[in-house]
């Protein structure tokens, strides 16, 4: 379903556009002014004239989009006048520096969720409930089969799994930006102080988190270890793509596990050939999605990503909220079959 042509936000080939602010939110193609919810690759793309984003995401954005991008750092809750619109960024609890973006002009207010979660996460600021007339929400895990356990509980499962294999390395595959650092912070929170090994792709993203003062165990890049060093009993965090790459040969015989919300379904884990799956997601689960929509008090809801038609129908038929899936280039269908798709 398309957005109404006269609304505060419209959908253009470049993405969601706010005429009053003359700005696009997480645009798919280069535009003069981009408002960025967070630094994952499917939300922050290169080539825009200027970027507005939360200050703590600056380091990672520059690293990924170029050191010389024009970036205007924003604080949570700060109300900005951009063009004729009042714009504010509010914590989304997804990854470091992630935000929901609220836009207001005339008598209308819209809220774009970006990616978000409701569970506590020691690696980033917690989600802030925000109200608006119209709410555009993601629905990556928009089915009631997805119910998350706390990060603490999952960290304990991982600790047990790791400690049961003192004679070989344990490798956790997790997305390099966000999930990997959350894992470290969750482990620190249950008292893990052992040094953790990091694949280069994960190590490169640590500086911003250390700078932000996130408590994590000591870490060291895998590449800095002397050749032939024993890795028995060590924990390594690596991105999923590294499973097929070279440079991990010294890890022969390691036990492996994948950390993702998709691991909630047995078939999804077995299909990927991981021995073990830990269910930990940086997206809202079903209950979190429904609760967030209710708390937004929006009269109209649009749903993007993943199970958008299912969540919209549920909101209409069960919750009595006017809701529709929003067609567009929000990733063809986020189905969990994409190994590369970054955030889950």
């Amino acid at each position: 379903m398309p957005l109404p042509a006269d609304g505060l936000l419209t959908l253009t080939p470049q993405g969601l556009y706010c005429r009053a602010a003359q700005a696009w939110i997480d645009p798919w193609r280069p535009v003069p002014r981009a408002l960025i919810t967070h630094a994952h690759a499917d939300h922050a793309r290169a080539g825009c004239g200027e970027y507005w984003a939360i200050a703590s995401s600056e380091g990672i954005l520059r690293q990924r989009l170029g050191q010389d991008i024009r970036l205007l750092p924003v604080d949570y809750g700060q109300v900005l006048g951009i063009g004729d619109a009042r714009v504010s960024f509010h914590s989304a609890g997804h990854v470091l520096g992630s935000a929901q973006i609220r836009l207001e002009a005339g008598a209308e207010s819209w809220l774009v969720s970006g990616d978000y979660k409701r569970c506590p996460d020691p690696s980033c600021t917690p989600f802030e409930p925000v109200t608006a007339d119209v709410f555009i929400t993601e629905a990556t895990f928009g089915l009631p089969i997805y119910r998350w356990q706390s990060g603490t509980e999952v960290a304990r499962q991982i600790q047990t799994w790791w400690q049961q294999a003192p004679d070989r390395p344990s490798v956790l595959f997790a997305y390099a930006f966000g999930k990997a650092q959350r894992l470290l912070a969750e482990l620190a929170a249950i008292g893990v102080e052992h040094e953790v090994l990091l694949h280069g792709a994960v190590h490169n993203l640590m500086a911003s988190y250390r700078e932000a003062g996130v408590a994590m165990p000591p870490t060291v890049p895998l590449g800095s270890l002397p050749r032939g060093a024993s890795l028995a009993g060590r924990l390594l965090i690596a991105p999923p793509a590294a499973q097929r790459g070279t440079g991990m040969r010294q890890l022969a015989g390691a036990q492996t596990a994948f950390v993702s919300g998709w691991m909630a379904v047995r078939g999804a884990r077995r299909r990927r050939g991981y021995g073990r799956g830990f269910v930990l997601s940086d997206h809202a689960d079903w209950g979190g999605l429904v609760r967030t929509v209710q708390q937004s008090r929006a009269q109209q809801v649009y749903v993007t990503h993943g199970q958008s038609d299912v969540l919209a129908r549920y909101l209409r038929e069960v919750e009595g909220i006017s809701a529709a899936p929003l067609a567009g280039h929000f990733e063809a269908e986020r189905s969990g079959n994409e190994e590369q798709a970054e955030p889950s």
Partner: peptide, 8 residues
Amino acid sequence: GSGKRANL
């Protein structure tokens, strides 16, 4: 499919 191939 079903089982290992569910949702695919």
